[in-house]
């Protein structure tokens, strides 16, 4: 059930990136997709245990720590990509006053 929900979130993002013309919304779509992937790793990785992976006296049966560590990296990379993309979109907007990607291409190539 969880996976189905995550899959729907992922599709929302993918749809935005592919079909919506506004660049900013595309970039948000990218963020949504990334969150879906992160959720997928964390939720599935938490299936095998009950407690957080911090080893103290009474803690046993922890969740898988690997997906969590990997996703920290993936989150940061996604933030970087988003920042750079927003910077590019901002520059394009200042020059052409539009966020529509097809319109931008027309204006630049003409």
């Amino acid at each position: 059930m969880n996976e189905l929900l995550i899959y729907l979130i992922f599709l929302t993002g993918l749809f935005a990136v592919v079909f919506i013309k506004n660049i900013i919304k595309k970039i948000f779509g990218l963020g949504i997709m990334n969150s879906a992937v992160v959720l997928l790793f964390i939720v599935r990785g938490a299936e095998i245990g009950e407690s957080a992976p911090i080893l103290e006296n009474t803690v046993y049966n922890v969740v898988d720590p690997i997906p969590q560590a990997l996703m920290l990296t993936a989150i940061v990379i996604s933030v970087c990509i988003t920042a750079l993309a927003l910077g590019l979109a901002y520059n394009l907007y200042l020059t052409y006053r539009t966020f529509d990607i097809d319109e931008l291409r027309d204006k630049i190539e003409s």
Partner: peptide
């Protein structure tokens, strides 16, 4: 990656 993104974004801005 974070560092380059910061550099690139600042350059763009």
């Amino acid at each position: 990656v974070l560092f380059i993104a910061a550099m690139g974004t600042l350059y763009l801005l």
